[in-house]
Write a protein that binds this DNA or RNA. Structure first.
Lengths: 341, 341
DNA sequence: ATCGTAACCGCAATCGTTTGCGACAATGTG
DNA sequence: CACATTGTCGCAAACGATTGCGGTTACGAT
C-alpha cells in the first residue's frame, strides 16, 4: 500500500510483466493489449503511482525546472516579477528554483554553479549591483544554454533581454514636473554601474534639455544604497540652502520617500514648495502623505514575458543559437498628490 | 573542451581508466595511486567537471532541495520569510523550490504532487486561506516525510510548527490603545478559518476584558480580503455614525492603512480623534502619515528557524517519526504616531 | 618455484524510466 | 503444410554517479 513512491518496477513485479510493458501501457503506446493496459492503469491508480521526476530528468536531460537569480526577494518590484515568473512556469508545468544573491557577486557565481549541476533547463537573471564582470553568464550563453536577463540587463553579445523603458519613464516623470511649473529639479540617482540608473538619469537630462532648462551637475546626487536614510540626509541638507531645488525626481520610491521626509522635516510643503516623483510604484507609494507620484514598472508582466521567452528557448528544438533579443516594456506615469500643485 | 557538462565517463575514457576509478580518485578514496588521482583531478579541473546532481539524487534518493509552499510572494511578510528560508538553505547547500498557491487549495494540492514526484527532501508550508481539509499534508506526515508548517499552522497530529505569538501581539496592541485612553476599540478581523486571525481576535478581546471594558460583537468586523478598499469602505461608514469607535486595531497593516484613509476621509484626525494599530509591520507602515503603530512579526527569523528545523529533520537518520513541535516566536509592538496622543 | 599479500583498479549492479530491437506465439495466406 | 504477418511483450542499454566485490598485477618471502 505504497503512497506516492510506487515505481514502475513495483507495478511490473506485481503484475508479472516487464517494466517496459508498464511504461508503455501507462502512455497508451500501441503494441500493448487492452487487457494489460487496464490492469496496469488500475494498479497504478490504486497505488497512486507518480513518475519519478528525477529519473526522468536523468534520462531526458530535462528537468522542467527553471532557475531564477535575483538580487533580493524582499523588494516589491522583484517580488512581483517572481510572481509573474511563477504563474507562467506553473502553467507550463515548470518548477521554479529561487536563488537570492543579496547583491553579492560571489553568491551569484555560486548560484550559477548550482544551476548547472542541477540540470536546470534555463535561467532568468537580474544580476547584482556588484556584478561588473559577466564571464559566468557568458560561458552559459556560448554553450547555448537558455538565459533571459530581465530588468537589469548586461551588454552581452547574443543575449536575450527584457527590461522596461527606464529612459522614457524618467523622461515622462521629469517632463511632468516641468509642466507643473517646477524650475529646479534635483535627481537622486542610482548606482552608476547599473544601466537602469544611467537610463533614468539620461531620461531626466533629456527632458530638461527638451525644455531648454540647464542640466546642473550638482543637481544630480547618487544614492547607491537606495535606502530611506540616505536620501533623507541628502535632502535635509540640500533643501536647507538658500539656492534650493523645488522638485525631486528620485531613482526609486524608497529614495523618494526618504526625500519627502527630509523635505518635510525642514517645514517645506509637498507639493506646494517641492514636487516629488519616484520610480517603481512600490506598494507604499500610494499610502504616503501626500501620495507619491511615480513611474510604474510592469513587474508582473516582466516576469511573465521573461518566462515565456525562456520556455520558448528551452523548447526550441535543434542546436541553433538563440536569436538575441531586447524587449522593452513601457512604463506608466502615475500622477498623484506629490507632484501636482 | 567541454564546459560544465563533462561527466565521469568522459574523464574515464580520456584517461583510459574506469568510471569507478575516476569517482574514487575525485573523492580521495584509498586504493587509488597518487599518480592516477593527480591525473584525474587535473583533467576534472581542466574540463571544469561538476557532478551531475540529478544522477546523485536518483542514486541517493536525496536532492538537497526543499520546497516552499506559500500563499503569495508579493506580500511583505512572506517575502521576508522566503528571504530567511533562502539564507539558511543556501548555507546548508540546499536549493529552494518555490510554489505560490495564490490562496487556492487546488494549486496547493498540485504543488504537493510536484514536490513528491521531484524527490524533494522536505517541505515548508504556509497553507492557503481556502485550505480547511489537510489530507494532502496528512499523508506526507504519516509517511514521515519532513514537513514544517510556518505562520499559518494546522491542527494536525505529529506536525512540526512554527509561528508567532499572534495572541500576545494583539493583546499588547490593544492594551497599548487602552493605555492611551481610547475607550471604544474597533477590531478589523481576518478570515475566520485562519488560526492567526482567531488568535489575534482573542488577544484583542482578552485585553479588553483585562481592562474591564465590554467586548461588543458589533465592534468586530471581518475583513476577509485584507485589501485596502475593504477596510476603507467599512470605516468610512462606521465612523460616520454618532456612536462611533475611537480606535482601531486591525488584523494587518493593509487593513489599517485603508482604515486610516477611511477615517481621514471623514475629517477625523489620527491619533487625536482615532487611534490606529496594525499588524505585521509592512514596509509602508512607517511611511504613512502619521506613521502606523504596528506589531512586528519576525518574518526573517521564522524563515530561518523553520528551515533549520526542516534540515534537522531531513538529516535525522533512521525511520523514527519526528517529534511534534510548536515553536512560538515573540512579536514586538512598534509604537509610532498613529496611536499616541 | 610457489605462495601470500599488498596495491591498484574494473565489473556490474543500482537508482527509475524510456525505447530500439528482437522474440515468440497466434493467426492468416498460399 | 510452409511461410509471412500481426499482435504482444521482454531484453538490455542508456542517462551519471556510487560502491561492494572480485580480479589483476608486482613484489617479497619462503
Amino acid at each position: 500500500m505504497k503512497i506516492g513512491q510506487a515505481t514502475i518496477k513495483d507495478i511490473a513485479k506485481a503484475l508479472n510483466v516487464s517494466s517496459s510493458t508498464v511504461s508503455r501501457a501507462l502512455k497508451d503506446y500501441p503494441g500493448i493489449s487492452d487487457e494489460t493496459k487496464r490492469k496496469v492503469k488500475e494498479l497504478a491508480d490504486k497505488w497512486n503511482y507518480r513518475p519519478n521526476a528525477v529519473a526522468l530528468s536523468l534520462r531526458k536531460s530535462k528537468s522542467f525546472t527553471i532557475g531564477v537569480i535575483i538580487p533580493e526577494v524582499v523588494h516589491f518590484f522583484f517580488s512581483t516579477v517572481i510572481s509573474g515568473i511563477e504563474e507562467v512556469a506553473f502553467m507550463h508545468g515548470y518548477n521554479v528554483i529561487l536563488c537570492q544573491t543579496n547583491e553579492k557577486l560571489k553568491r551569484e557565481i555560486s548560484s550559477v554553479e548550482t544551476i548547472i549541476s542541477n540540470q536546470i533547463d534555463g535561467l532568468l537573471v537580474s544580476f547584482s549591483k556588484e556584478t561588473t564582470n559577466f564571464d559566468h553568464f557568458k560561458r552559459l550563453i556560448e554553450q547555448h544554454y537558455p538565459v533571459v536577463f530581465f530588468d537589469r540587463i548586461p551588454n552581452l553579445e547574443n543575449s536575450v533581454n527584457i527590461t522596461v523603458n527606464d529612459y522614457q519613464g524618467a523622461f515622462d516623470a521629469t517632463k511632468h514636473l516641468i509642466s507643473q511649473g517646477y524650475k529646479d529639479i534635483l535627481h537622486l540617482a542610482g548606482p552608476r554601474n547599473l544601466d537602469i540608473s544611467k537610463n533614468r538619469m539620461n531620461g531626466y537630462m533629456d527632458a530638461l534639455k527638451e525644455a531648454e532648462m540647464p542640466v546642473k551637475p550638482h543637481r544630480i546626487i547618487e544614492c547607491p544604497e537606495g535606502v530611506q536614510e540616505e536620501s533623507f540626509k541628502i535632502c535635509a541638507k540640500v533643501f536647507k540652502e538658500q539656492d534650493r531645488p523645488d522638485a525631486i525626481f528620485a531613482n526609486n520610491d524608497m529614495a523618494a520617500a526618504g526625500a519627502m521626509r527630509g523635505v518635510k522635516s525642514l517645514g517645506l510643503k509637498i507639493p506646494e514648495d517641492v514636487g516629488v516623483v519616484g520610480f517603481s510604484n512600490w506598494q507604499f507609494s500610494s499610502m504616503v502623505d501626500p501620495p507619491l507620484s511615480t513611474v510604474s514598472q510592469p513587474g508582473f508582466k516582466i516576469g511573465e514575458r521573461a518566462t515565456q521567452l525562456l520556455i520558448e528557448m528551452i523548447e526550441q528544438k535543434g542546436d541553433e543559437p538563440f536569436t538575441p533579443k531586447l524587449e522593452i516594456l513601457e512604463t506608466e506615469l502615475l500622477i498623484r498628490g506629490s507632484s501636482v500643485r
